[in-house]
Design a protein around this nucleic acid. Sequence first.
DNA 1: TTGGCGTGTTAAAAATGGTTAAGTTTTCTG
DNA 2: CAGAAAACTTAACCATTTTTAACACGCCAA
Lengths: 232, 232
Amino acid sequence: MKENKNILLAEDDENLGKLLKSYLQAKGFGVELARNGKIAYELFNNTKHHFDLLVLDVMMPEMDGFTLGSEVRLLDRKVPLLFLSAKSMKEDKLKGFDVGADDYITKPFSMEELLARINAILKRTELHQKNVQEKIHVGKIEYEPELSVLHLNDGVKKLTTKENMLLRLLVQNQNELLDRQAALRAVWGDDNYFNGRSMDVYIAKLRKLLKEDSNIEIMNVHGVGFKLLVKQ
Amino acid sequence: MKENKNILLAEDDENLGKLLKSYLQAKGFGVELARNGKIAYELFNNTKHHFDLLVLDVMMPEMDGFTLGSEVRLLDRKVPLLFLSAKSMKEDKLKGFDVGADDYITKPFSMEELLARINAILKRTELHQKNVQEKIHVGKIEYEPELSVLHLNDGVKKLTTKENMLLRLLVQNQNELLDRQAALRAVWGDDNYFNGRSMDVYIAKLRKLLKEDSNIEIMNVHGVGFKLLVKQ
DNA sequence: TTGGCGTGTTAAAAATGGTTAAGTTTTCTG
DNA sequence: CAGAAAACTTAACCATTTTTAACACGCCAA
């Protein structure tokens, strides 16, 4: 049960990025380095990856750290965020916490301090940790997002790509709102009218699949999004 | 509507302690001030008190902050701890996180920063406590806000998004005034003329639903708002 | 007491969503 | 590579939810 933790590091300064990456790897973490916010978002949104913590530089080209943080928050309300900033400015800190930062550290910082903060965050989120992405129970139904497979009464159902991406988002936000626009951007990469209807079609498909467990419901929040309700 | 959060503040510097206490009280927190670690421990251990967060100065007579933190951890594995320290020394920080700190802030710090960190901690602990699918009794009627469901005589009534949001607000302010503008901002995100009329329409809908129990009444307070009256 | 503004209520209009099925594109497979 | 199968999108139609409109009534201050 060694399961080492995975960190997504978004840092545009190549030297600093590589330095941090190898330091954290030496400490036993799995580290993916993204050189800007857009790449980081795509990595986060890529089904193949699961991250336990995001370390985001505030100042980056393409998409700054705060914007990235907010977008990520729409997809996953719980994943811990740690911001790196050159400025120690008050407004920046406040903005960071507003986005839902779990911590905030100003450059320059020592590697040990970063490590201490990372460990502190992971320690306190550990208790509430979701299963390490092998098998997830949604009500009575077993779901394996990595294999994109649902275990139903009448056997194993292989999900299609879009079914799986959407269900994964819903499950990550179980009993919480999944924002419509955020889901469209995450699954369809865009949020125009027809994609919207396409998503509705997929919601209908998922409802059919999940109706085997009557305690599961995909509830619509009018004009805002969907909520995967699992009665306890 | 807002059950305000309680903070236990352990700080031996009388000036700083009182300053922080009154600042946090002004921000809506309940604050108990203890002038050393021993008193703080006794306050915490006194079952009459419930604290949502402990703010502990590291350097205190009788019992230092870290010791206090460890002792408290033995009683409660989850209660959030935030340490205040004059030193920014690395070892101190590490020790703090080792004790299970949720955050660590070095003096001098601004009040805003402390507040931001407190709110950040409370926000993320709130997430883990939320999602309780509780059943609330409104008079004789059972209401499940998370499922947006009312249990009426002739079966279960599924509420629409807006019905649920508005009813939830009313119930949270049961027998107290729900301010009109506040409700509009909370449910409609805006408070222009037409939203106002939309809200009136929803009040009418809710009245119809709730008239099953004659002890329940949604009363209008002219020009100010509504009050959900439940006679005992 | 009266006029204006706020509220109660119902109904029609507009927006959003649920679902099925027909089209289109992509992927698989021989 | 062609044909079939699967995946995905678009269309259509209907249902539900929300907003807007309209009119009646009530409260309250001048």
